[in-house]
Design a protein around this nucleic acid. Structure first.
Lengths: 309, 309
DNA sequence: CCTGGTTATAGCGCTACGGCATCGGCAGTC
DNA sequence: GACTGCCGATGCCGTAGCGCTATAACCAGG
């Protein structure tokens, strides 16, 4: 079954005549007769009742006619959508984000804005851990990755830094340090700590350990895990925490403290593979940049008030 | 855009490799490369990112792939439905009925039963006056006609008689003849009558007039129209009426009487064009025959009680 | 009976497609 | 670092499908 055959068939059905249809299609009538006959032979179904003064659709022909019209329409939309997709104005953009980013209002808001502003493009979100995002980008599993990461990036990957955050320390509300507002690393001596895992996140682990030691702190690692607020609330440990999430994570029983001498920047960035850079991707990048424009730099200096009780 | 191209494209997309796709399609790899390139040239869009170790869909390719798959699926259903339609197990059967038939429970019930029993077939009803049904059948506007009619039928038309009815006389409830149960034509002398129109229904008119004259009645024609029950109720005229509808038409203020010496049979029949006879048509015919099996013959002898008060 | 309309059939030429042989690029291996 | 496989692209040739013209067969209306 060839599309040309269907086109021809529709023309004959609409004109009710091989002659007129042939004229409309700009081909000769015999050729048209043959092609329609071919279609009937292939389907083993009579599509027209022929008479000496024109043709009429059979019941089967009637059905095929509506079906064929639908197929033609769908073909047209396929063409259209493919073209739009090439311009990044249609299709699906797969966005990978870490659990931390997924909890950030600004990031989610920017994606929502993109969805509305780039009509026809569906942004599909996937939770992808930081350490897997570059691989996922390379394999094409995601088109865009949102994570906390600093250069270097692998070759072929483009990125934009969006915003810098800092580490704070999350402690139980009745902890001896609660209410201090800000501390130094050395103040955490003797505390059980939640700490990045050296196997899951070796870079972060090394960096963090080095920073602690620079600040005169040999951390006592209670658990190689992060973000377990309930453990902090129970007073089982203190935990380093992303300042961007500290306020929203400050559930009952915990509060957070600034750390004056912890100088590890947390860089939120968006990355994509240059070869898969489409207008839709760039649009989302631009929206993200705009969404985070207010807090591009580390806002150590403009610290917001501690919301601890 | 050729279906063959789309098939090829889908194969390459699914296999992620021209070589493997070519093997699956049983063609050589170079031919496949060319055809996919043709498709890309036509759409002016890159569908694959080629590398020395395989290919990967671009965003546009991703979109076209899902679209193409849908088109293929729809093509398959088109094939399927066309075949089914040829067997009369799919599609639309246009049924023409007169207003009188449309008021008959048994006819409507049979069509409903057909709708349920022949899944996939949609029975579409059209009100078509008796005198236009043969033309509509010939022009293919309807596939099946239900009307009161006796042979002869035009050539090429098949039919089945379904049931015979008779004429009764509808009179106002306070009419001098009301309560008589049955009368003779001569009893209607001097009555104003509703009578078939000689222009709209010449056959019926002639037949009816002849029958009246045979019965010794020279009808006084008040209006060339039928079925105007409210006129009868107001006592402005009496009217001949189809016995099948007399009971249901006996609204407040009217009743009906048998006419002993009016021997014009009312033959309910279903007709169709032999050349457009499909299993769906035959199925509906069979269901209609079954639905009317109980009253195939004129039931003059088994007259049901007059429901007039 | 002829004329003008319809669709179907026959024979010819071109285009598009598929086949084979080969080239060029990249990765893993010895 | 050359070698070997595996990949997609390119060049060239034969063929099958499609459209063309000419013509037949059929039917209705003048």
């Amino acid at each position: 079954m060839d599309l040309k055959h269907l086109r021809y068939f529709i023309a004959v059905a609409e004109e009710g005549s091989f002659h007129r249809a042939a004229r409309r299609l700009c081909i000769a009538q015999p050729a048209l007769s043959r092609r329609v006959r071919d279609l009937e032979d292939e389907l083993e179904v009579a599509l027209f009742e022929r008479s000496s003064r024109g043709v009429r659709l059979t019941a089967a022909g009637e059905v095929l006619c509506t079906e064929a019209r639908q197929i033609m329409a769908q073909l047209e939309t396929a063409r259209e959508r493919t073209r739009l997709a090439a311009q990044g104005r249609y299709g699906t953009v797969n966005v990978g984000l870490t659990t931390v980013v997924a909890q950030m209002r600004a990031a989610v808001a920017a994606i929502g804005a993109a969805k509305r502003s780039v009509a026809g493009v569906n942004f599909k979100l996937h939770l992808v851990p930081s350490d897997q995002q570059m691989g996922a980008l390379a394999r094409g599993e995601i088109d865009l990755g949102l994570q906390y990461r600093r250069p270097p990036y692998p070759p072929g990957i483009a990125y934009r830094d969006l915003r810098r955050d800092r580490y704070v320390v999350m402690v139980a509300r009745d902890h001896r340090l609660a209410g201090r507002g800000s501390i130094r690393l050395a103040d955490l001596s003797g505390e059980d700590m939640l700490f990045p895992s050296p196997t899951l996140r070796p870079e972060t682990y090394r960096e963090m350990l080095a920073a602690c030691q620079r600040g005169g702190l040999e951390p006592r690692i209670a658990l190689e895990a992060e973000g377990l607020v309930s453990m902090v609330a129970e007073g089982l440990a203190v935990s380093l925490y992303n300042s961007a999430l500290a306020a929203s994570a400050a559930i009952d029983g915990v509060t957070y403290l600034e750390v004056e001498d912890l100088d590890i920047p947390l860089q939120l960035a968006v990355a994509w593979e240059k070869s898969r850079e489409t207008p839709a991707v760039l649009a989302l990048v631009a929206l993200l940049e705009r969404g985070f424009a207010g807090d591009r730099t580390d806002n150590h200096t403009t610290r917001e008030p501690n919301n601890a009780g």
